[in-house]
Design a protein around this nucleic acid. Structure first.
Lengths: 141, 141
DNA sequence: CGCAATGTTGACAAGAATAGTCGGGTATGA
DNA sequence: TCATACCCGACTATTCTTGTCAACATTGCG
């Protein structure tokens, strides 16, 4: 279980924009400084736009900027937008899955995990990242 | 972000064995009743064996059985064994990753998420599943 | 007006990972 | 010694990931 570069790059990009919120639109070329190929990043920003997380200004001096306050955008929103809804097992989306119905107690596990992880992702906002407060503590060594 | 069928099938198989713990070794053919191709399942059970989660008896009347009590085997153990260690972002395993070091506050997010998810997975045992107690509550509707 | 800067869209493709499949072993109980 | 099992490594079709590319649409500015 791992997330692809899309989610990672998406978060990079959004964090970049969060750091520059209020400074006007940032062109793709600038955002690409985070170390992602422009052509690829473009697609990701397209997804983020369609998800309503960034707005764009076309034409010269245009670019991308956050559509909302950093405190209203969560890591979960970003992952969703870039990776598509994370379904830990298609058993969740797909109702008629359990061939041998007996053992599908496992389904409850996926359900529980999925909900927990979503809550977790939703609990971290860009604002939290900007403030660098330890957004919760599990295993701070 | 989703886990592959390996983790899912692995959990199916382990739950199957948990339900039959104490009844002697279960041959591959029986375990495959969970709805997984035998040849594929064999690989997964091989991984589970190497991880020390199941033991095997070779020869006639042989088969697979849990290596430990259901309460000492967690969903996390099973996912690890079948999918390999889940690294949400290679930024974690790979130290020298942050090209533009400035923005790698994102790293702390992966760290936090990774730890949280691992804790979560480790918190559910096969015993919990057998008992079907709601192993924690997030969003019980 | 016209050009340059910029976002928009969709097609394409190499490489890796997934999900099996297969064939030939080895061990063991009856 | 034979049938029942597990063990192991190679092979493959399909899908997903990670980009790349080309053509187009929109806007600011001189």
């Amino acid at each position: 279980m791992k997330l692809s570069t899309k989610g990672k790059y998406g978060l990079y990009a959004m964090f970049y924009l969060a750091q520059r919120a209020g400074n006007g639109p940032q062109p793709l070329k600038s955002v690409a400084e985070i170390g992602v190929p422009e052509d690829y990043l473009e697609q990701l920003l397209g997804n983020l736009r369609r998800a309503g997380l960034v707005t764009t200004v076309r034409g010269a001096q245009g670019g991308y900027q956050l559509a909302k306050e950093p405190c209203s955008i969560t890591v979960g929103d970003i992952i969703d937008a870039t990776e598509g809804p994370l379904s830990i097992s298609e058993c969740l989306s797909d109702e008629g899955c359990c061939h041998r119905s007996g053992q599908c107690k496992t389904r409850r596990v996926w359900e529980y995990l999925s909900n927990s992880i979503n809550d977790l992702l939703q609990s971290i906002s860009l604002q939290d990242m900007l403030e660098q407060e330890q957004f919760g503590n599990t295993k701070e060594s």
